[in-house]
Amino acid sequence: MATTLNIETLAKEDALEIFTQMLLIRRFEEEAERLYRRGLVRGFLHTYIGEEAIAVGAIPNLREDDYVIGHYRDHGHALARGVDPKAAMAELCGKATGCSGGKGGSMHLFDAEKHFMGGHAIVGGQLPLAIGIALGVKLKKLDSVVMCFFGDGAVNEGEFHEAMNMASLWKLPVVFMLENNLYGMGTDVNRSRAGGASIFGAAEPYMIPAVQIDGMDVMAVRETVSEGIAKVREGTGPVFIEAMAYRFHGHSMADPSNYRDNEEVQENRSRDPIDKFREDCLEAGKIEATDLELAAEKVDLVVQEAREFAEQSPEPAPEELYTHIYADPEEN
């Protein structure tokens, strides 16, 4: 695993921003779970609790003209990309003000302006799309990169292997971000993958440089991804980063929680990425405890506003059922 970037080198405002973003995702997800229990969020709700360090370590390294695309556990990616928490929460609640107009829901957040190209809910399905976005970038002769998130479950899909091959063959600007949380829904990765739980070696046959990092260490993610992006931007082809992770809650709210030992869950929760970063910062004297308290209060306010906005927003009008099935013809 890559070594952790020395926290000493981090500017105070950057440290505070990282802490704030991770906490925002945590609190957003906790609120989403409460809204689910209240019946305001329905359908499937997959929370990112425990995996915040990956999105926050990875996505802010991108430029505005880069692209992010991922899977259905997408709230963290969206927030880290700057999608308005109000619009995201409204989407979870199926409101017209949601970032997908209430038509996508939790699994399908979109914000084209922010180049957040969607949460995609067919496992592995976003990988070919990422290839296409990267191909488009290349044909347009731009130097943007595409960051594509996927889970350990996706690597057994044919689309994963097809995408790896094409990305490497055509030297496409893709940062493959594997979030390995060790379970494809309820199935242990060791019971679903011949190669076992450590996956990054799967990139080797495709000649894609690959590395494995601790996805609970936001500084490790930040450093590795930053290097990865720089390499991809040179135009030499994709990179593959496996971030080892653990989701603290169930696969979705419907999870029976019967396939993991409580001991295992507790052990992983003791490595909480937000707690770790907070402690590291305090220990290094990087941030004062009062700074962190202040940041937490701000986060609480943002989440509260997001909830209120979602609750108070109107549902989509009935005619919205029929809009945007087809795009309008091009004007030319």
Partner: peptide, 25 residues
């Protein structure tokens, strides 16, 4: 560049069409 022979990987080359269309190709 513009007449691209693909691997026999229908899912990824159709998906690559979709993805490139998403950004205006």
């Amino acid at each position: 560049e513009r007449v691209r022979d693909t691997p026999i990987s229908e899912s990824v080359f159709v998906g690559a069409g979709v993805g490139s269309a998403m950004i205006g190709m």
